[in-house]
Design a protein around this nucleic acid. Sequence first.
DNA 1: CCAGAAACATGCAAGCATGTATGTATGTAT
DNA 2: ATACATACATACATGCTTGCATGTTTCTGG
Lengths: 220, 220
Amino acid sequence: MQPAPDKAPRTQEERTAATRSRLIEATLDLLLSKGYAGTSTVDIAARAGLTRGALAHHFAGKDELVVEAFDKHLTMVTSDIRTYAGLVQGGSLSLSDFIDRVWIIFSGRFFMLTLEEVTAARHNDYLRVRLEKRTRVFHEHLDAIWRHFFAGTGLGALEIEVMLNATLCLLRGMGVQTVLRDDPVYFRRLLRFWKAILKEQIEGATRAASAKTPDPEPHA
Amino acid sequence: MQPAPDKAPRTQEERTAATRSRLIEATLDLLLSKGYAGTSTVDIAARAGLTRGALAHHFAGKDELVVEAFDKHLTMVTSDIRTYAGLVQGGSLSLSDFIDRVWIIFSGRFFMLTLEEVTAARHNDYLRVRLEKRTRVFHEHLDAIWRHFFAGTGLGALEIEVMLNATLCLLRGMGVQTVLRDDPVYFRRLLRFWKAILKEQIEGATRAASAKTPDPEPHA
DNA sequence: CCAGAAACATGCAAGCATGTATGTATGTAT
DNA sequence: ATACATACATACATGCTTGCATGTTTCTGG
């Protein structure tokens, strides 16, 4: 195994950052394709073009790497969802399209990674403690996004949270099913159903809200 | 390790059935407490009060055992849900209580087992092929239960399936969250929200059906 | 330009899981 | 009661993973 010709990382700091990043990416790839238990530190190092020695130098072991990886991909997804929510608020993305995009997230790489990490965490105290903490932060971010997102629909902050969290739970549950059920029609139907529900809820709340205040909107 | 004093299984057939059953139970227990990867055939045999030799005699290996175990616990859950659905139809269980009971299933042993098996199946062709097949059967049974359950609510068969499958997906997604989020209040809220939605949907459909004709078959 | 530190590689020992071969006990048919 | 099949136990060899100890290369500060 040769030193892997880096582009040209001059400073040590850059080298470190680049190497750590490569190891984390390798971890995510392998977690996805071979699962937590199926991934060894040898695999990770090899995929990153390094050896186990290098890995040991940067991370205490597999679990520390997995935590870092979890963190990274939660950050990425938070950012994606925030972007989508912004587009919806700006009017350039429909609610339906928003759901579709989030569904893509929950039926793809991201969700399968969380599935691996969550099941691993069930039997690994080190992982569980750390992933719990990061999950909490993740959900706080999401709730903030929801509140911003649906501000002014006539729904209360708590209702918004519940509704959007229910949406995520639904998509999560569907995501789990995709592993053992390859049936796009089935999933399409569920999405259509849920979109209709959401529309009803939001419209209902909007009507109710505008009926109260002297806003422009005659009631039925 | 002594021969483990069996009660008094005379015939070979009885001995075999008892031993296989013990091994399957041990597998389920360990899958739950230590996960798929964390469970070895040594563990399973020991917990069943046997040795690896006995295990090898009855099952080709861990995976065959896991498939059998999957089958067994799907059967148990199908039976539970069927019972609950029957109680609802008979009027001795409210829709709300029905949801609560199914939620207990999806936040407990059953679902965690599924989670283990599903994630293991993602990287194990032997498992995936077999679990896919059994999952299909499981869902056919569920759909049959749903149709029977909600017969005469004014909803079409497809709508019933979609609605109940959405319910299961929601609970599944919530189940996944329970691993890293210990927050009963949060889950209660989601349940309450969903129960309200279901009630709305069913009442809406019932009204629409009885408003049209005594014949229940509304078209789009 | 030359220590010293950080980054990275290599090698070895120990633990554990599995496959398989072979030995022993328990039932069952004649 | 004897012979055979089935149920179960024991033992060994192999491969894989990890921790650790020890080299070698690459950067950085004086």
